[in-house]
Design a protein around this nucleic acid. Structure first.
Lengths: 216, 216
DNA sequence: AAGAAACTTGACTGAATGGTCAACGCTGGT
DNA sequence: ACCAGCGTTGACCATTCAGTCAAGTTTCTT
């Protein structure tokens, strides 16, 4: 860790860093290439040369924009995390409970379909024990989940949804939606490579959660 | 690929290979150590030195028993796959449909709890696109799933379970059970490190599938 | 007991890979 | 038109890591 004048990110001092047009463009190109490579091969499996090739830039040029492999990975995860948690934040406590939960499920499934690379990047990180995002999970995500669980329990107490363990309800939505992105390879091999893995998934999950949550 | 007289595995010729006591013991030790390391760091992230250290053997000794890193990994996956598919094979077409499906779900969940390392090894492989087990998935697993799906559809046609997409039903069981092993780190960080991640999972899934499958 | 075969390892090697550096564009402001 | 500093890269390092080898030690068989 030394030079790299082209720093940005949350750790930079309060100077008015003038990011040029070229900087913005190249950083985006690099992050996109890195997402492609990291999500396909994992952190250790990815090489700077692969990222450079994918980005169409030279390796030293990559390192001109980022402090190292680790820094690129960190930048990706940081960007990802807020995006990843957004659907959960959009739960409206004032809304109709079942519709709200279904909406969350659909948003999450849509993200798996639209951002499978991000999903795999995240899955890889958690599989390794989440060493690089442990702090965020223990604080931000945990608080968000606790709040949501409390809301779900309130809804259950009011008899507006069936009483179920709110944590497992949330985990089940994560599990199902992640699965369609992370295990896409397996699903394709079983259902045929030409089928969209998420085909029918929404209908299935719709039925699943409608029956689970219907107040009795 | 050259020497390594201590070969075994499914590719060996039909000679009566006399595996000694030491060979059996050390191979088991190596595979166990490799499972530990591969499941924690992925294929590329694992090193032979780590495996050797974990096994308490020297690196050349590891290579005396296996043809290379790749061979160890292949051996693990091969061993794993049959174990992994067993619960599905145990579905009894003559049994009571809902009870059979619940039984499958419970067996799968039990495996996630008892063999989280195997689960993560498998998840890692699929995440990378399943390059090393693609053949088995496309043949054995696919056939097994197709058969099971046909059985489920028959049960639905007979009105013994609610009509649901059989493939997504199977995928959902995989997704939920794998999640508790593969995303254990995340679950622990959210629910507290002292809680068993699968606590309450069985009850939740029980409710979930009971309501989904109840004939209407 | 002794020879053969099985087992073990310290010391290497070659390739891959993250990162550095000095030198060379190129561009925008004046 | 010029030049300061941003942008770019070929050529290099240092380290890591899979795999080799020759020389040992242990175990089995008779």
């Amino acid at each position: 860790m030394a030079q790299a004048n082209a720093q940005r990110g949350s750790s930079g001092a309060a100077e008015a860093r003038t990011t040029t047009r070229i900087q913005r463009r190249n950083r985006r190109i690099i992050l996109d290439a890195a997402l492609e490579v990291f999500s396909a091969h994992g952190f250790r499996g990815a090489t700077l040369d692969q990222i450079a090739a994918e980005a169409g830039l030279s390796k030293p040029n990559i390192l001109y924009y980022f402090d190292g492999k680790e820094a690129i990975h960190r930048a990706l995860l940081t960007d990802l995390l807020s995006t990843w948690l957004d659907p959960l934040r959009m739960l409206n406590p004032e809304g109709e409970p079942v519709a709200e939960i279904m909406g969350y499920m659909r948003r999450k499934l849509a993200m798996s379909r639209e951002f499978p690379r991000e999903s795999r990047l995240f899955a890889n990180e958690i599989l390794q024990g989440a060493p690089r995002i442990e702090a965020v999970i223990r604080t931000d995500l945990r608080a968000l989940v606790d709040d949501t669980a409390a809301l779900l329990r309130r809804w259950a107490d009011q008899g507006r949804i069936a009483p179920v363990d709110p944590y497992h309800l949330i985990f089940s939505i994560w599990a199902l939606t992640q699965h369609y992105a992370d295990f896409e390879a397996q699903i394709r091999m079983i259902r045929g490579d030409d089928t969209d893995p998420t085909d029918g998934a929404e209908a299935f999950m719709d039925t699943l959660y409608t029956r689970l949550l219907a107040p009795r």
